[in-house]
Nucleic acid binder design. Structure first.
Lengths: 200, 200
DNA sequence: CGTGAAACTTTAGTGACACTAAATTCGGGC
DNA sequence: GCCCGAATTTAGTGTCACTAAAGTTTCACG
């Protein structure tokens, strides 16, 4: 099965129709480089670069790594992305759908639609009522939090961080983490991360 | 050169010492799956999964794609990351280094250190004085902007977006974009993106 | 401790495809 | 039309992506 499945990478195209080869070509042209230059820097032949870009050949991981390096970017820029989804470039304060999270009416979140279908960033504004404490969690990706208002206590991998308005927190989401509103008022946190959110 | 360079992918290890195989194993164990399960779902043999995880064999892109799918994640989770860098989980309002950007004293930014060495997200708080207009730019990654204060006009790929405090903007950074402070006061924007920032 | 089964590793291959060198074609400028 | 740079095509080759099966290790249970 392995070898005859050489094409699934290309078949799983994002909606904009770009596969691995097309993305490499787009990047090369954006940098104004010839195939010969890329081939030289990647230690490959110009013929192979041509075949890669036209989807006729698929590079090994190490060759792809070298091509990405010759193109001044990282490998993940060329690999397949998740399928398209609803999106909106701008979201407006006071006009976002508000959803209740979990149980107990202690947390609400404003859903921010991603700016474009293939976006890897996801964002969410969460309103946390005083006293609310989440359970310990751990997941893929990374969390970036900007505390818009209030006082929160975050625990990440056994370490506690107390945050006030304007502070930020950023950590690897694999690490066990939870949060508590330790203030007297509703806290508002802006979360930006690379974990795919449930889309209402 | 191509084939004899089968190991550069492993040699370019992030600081936590994890290569492709080790990351696959970690993910598999995190999901509580056996090699046999992953092999079945990926259409490969258990022997090959074992060799991949121990770095003895390197999968083709299509096989890696299928393994990632069997592990409920995307390929980019397994590829090499940039080298380590300075980081800090928390940044405090009023305590961040402030830098002047460009010329003319019309823009200052607070540098937010990434939360961990391998983080892919980068963040920055920018203070934009009234009237300041940036030049048109375009780069890798994606931009997520939360306007903390003020009124800004953003132009992305020919389309204009006027934002007020609390609004967000999110777009593919490849698209030509620029911004102008159209208000009477300093605007503050929180930028979160996947482009690597200059690190002071 | 012994046993058996599950989980993983090792071995001994095979053949397809990752990649090459060189020939040919294409496109643009003069 | 000629020339040259850029890209594509052709005709391979041999390495490694991947297999099946045997062997080893680990783990749970009595």
């Amino acid at each position: 099965m392995g070898k005859s499945a050489a094409w699934p990478v290309e078949l799983e195209l994002p909606e904009d129709g770009k596969g691995l080869g097309a993305r490499i070509r787009a990047r090369r042209k954006a940098l104004g480089k010839t195939m010969q230059q890329v081939a030289d820097e990647a230690g490959l032949t110009i013929g192979f670069i041509s075949q890669i870009e036209r989807g006729i050949s698929t590079p090994s991981l190490s060759s792809l790594y070298n091509v990405a390096k010759a193109l001044d970017c990282s490998v993940d820029m060329f690999v397949a992305q998740p399928p398209g989804r609803r999106h909106s470039v701008v979201t407006r304060a006071g006009k976002r759908p508000l959803f209740e999270a979990g149980t107990g009416n202690t947390r609400f979140y404003e859903f921010l639609e991603p700016g474009f279908a293939e976006a890897r960033l996801n964002a969410c504004l969460t309103h946390v009522l005083p006293g609310h404490a989440s359970e310990m969690m751990s997941h893929d990706g990374e969390d970036f939090i900007y505390l818009v208002a209030g006082h929160m206590l975050y625990e990440v991998d056994g370490t506690s961080y107390e945050l006030g308005a304007g502070d930020t927190l950023h950590f690897d989401s694999h690490k066990p983490h939870r949060r508590t509103n330790i203030g007297a008022e509703t806290a508002i946190e802006l979360w930006v991360g690379t974990m795919q959110l449930f889309q209402p």
